[in-house]
Amino acid sequence: MFRVVRAENLAPDIYRLEIEAPRIARKQKPGQFVIVRVYEEGERIPLTIEKADPQRGTINIVVQSVGKTTELLNRLEAGDAILDVVGPLGQPSEIEKFGTVVAISGGVGTAMAYPTAAALKKAGNFVISIVGARNKKRVILEREMRDVSDELLITTDDGSYGKKGLVTDGLRELIQNGTHIDRVLAVGPIVMMKAVAEITRASRIPTIVSLNPIMLDGTGMCGGCRVLVDGKSRFACVDGPEFEAHGVDFDTLLHRNAMYVDAEKRSVERCHQEMESHD
């Protein structure tokens, strides 16, 4: 059992959970993730580690409610427990002094971009962050991102905060203004990462994306998280989750991630019915 120490609401449907997991806290590096199973009948899902505190023996995960498991996680309060948490899994982000790095994140992806952006900043890079969200209420980790960025641009779809538009507009503008960019990191919805890759492909800027395929064991045993990179099948759990964006087949990933949509809908509906009958 892994105890929840703190649960904090960051935005509508988005919570930050601090979880006691001393072994993971000691080993976590930016870019890595955990797999959690909330309760005995639960499924296993991967979640990125936002931050680890080896002294306190805790890790933070940031969760957006998109299905039954994430909804259950976001109902947890301090003192509750998660049945299984395993990690840190995946390859850590590649951290070195590249020069100028643009860290682009959308929605809850900002929680995944944050630790890597922080490490890149610490390694001496000039970090320009572009944080996107649908609207003002959904912008998360603004203060944290500001702390680790030399420049921060916020975009919202509806213009309720920062600049109106998409993160890709911000990136395009930087390129058009002649900003020299050595590397781009993009974390967020698949369509966003794909759009970023299209832009930087033309400018030949090395671009890293953090992929989020459906996973099961997270240790390379099942191959369910296979993604096509440069036409080859790679396992996101052990070879990734970060890959060079220009080789990634995003359309196949998008399609594979929709494999269980019907089942997920059924699961959520059933869960809501059960909750109502308990009220």
């Binding site: 639960g42 499924e43 494999m259 699961s267």
Partner: peptide, 10 residues
Amino acid sequence: KFPEYDQPIV
């Protein structure tokens, strides 16, 4: 045992 258990299969 889906949906008593949450993990689906096709």
